[in-house]
Design a protein around this nucleic acid. Structure first.
Length: 193
DNA sequence: CAAGAGATCATCT
DNA sequence: GATGATCTCTTGA
């Protein structure tokens, strides 16, 4: 079943954890790309110095201020897109970064998109994932309770997971060490470290 | 195997 | 004009 908007309206940490073992689906033209989520990070809101929205409401962070259940896709380092899901109430800017999935369907297409044949190298990182799933800024603001990009609960119980500090946020002061990254234990498909 | 540099651009100061 | 919620390749031991 497709995850409803109420799912995304919950506290961000809760959403990040509950997303593990759920399925990300992108209907891209004639191809359906599917992956099982194995790694996420929570960005808690304006007080979280690692969250883009801590810098205020800008053109870029606008989507995070909107209602839950929409995609926040941004471009970074001149190369990569990052996929986030907006959480919590309207006007409260928080989101969950999808960092890695286990490829399930559309694998041949992912291999082409990534120019790699290694299954564990297709979507094991936020930039790789977006490349494999053909996700770019044209999907920024997209409703993930609609038909193109959405998530599904396929009845799998919540996998065992670990919490670690988030990656690449050394600038975030006391927030950089908070255990807000969640990874499925024993998955081969998480990003390194 | 670990460490470091380079790639490249939208966004904000 | 500086700087990233990254990735890949090269280097050197």
């Amino acid at each position: 079943m497709k995850l409803p908007r109420t799912f995304y309206r919950q506290p961000t940490e809760e959403v990040a954890q509950q997303l593990l073992g759920k399925f990300l689906i992108h209907r891209h033209g004639a191809t359906t790309l599917t992956g099982r989520i194995v790694e996420t990070e929570a960005y808690l809101g304006p007080h979280d110095l690692a969250c883009h929205a801590s810098k205020g409401r800008t053109k870029r962070t606008e989507v995070m201020f909107g209602p839950a259940g929409h995609a926040y896709v941004y471009f970074i380092y001149g190369f990569y897109n990052m996929l986030n899901l907006v959480t919590e109430a309207k006007d409260f800017p928080a989101a969950v970064l999808i960092r890695a999935v286990e490829p399930v369907r559309g694998i041949e297409r992912m291999k082409q998109n990534r120019k790699s044949d290694l299954l564990h190298n297709l979507a094991s990182g936020p930039g790789k994932l977006c490349q494999a799933f053909a996700i770019d800024r044209s999907l920024n603001g997209a409703d993930v309770c609609a038909k193109v990009l959405y998530l599904e609960d396929r009845g799998e119980p919540l996998p065992r997971f670990a919490a670690t500090p988030r990656i690449g946020v050394d600038y975030a002061g006391k927030w950089k060490d908070k255990p807000l990254r969640f990874v499925v234990r024993d998955s081969k498909f998480v990003s390194k470290r």
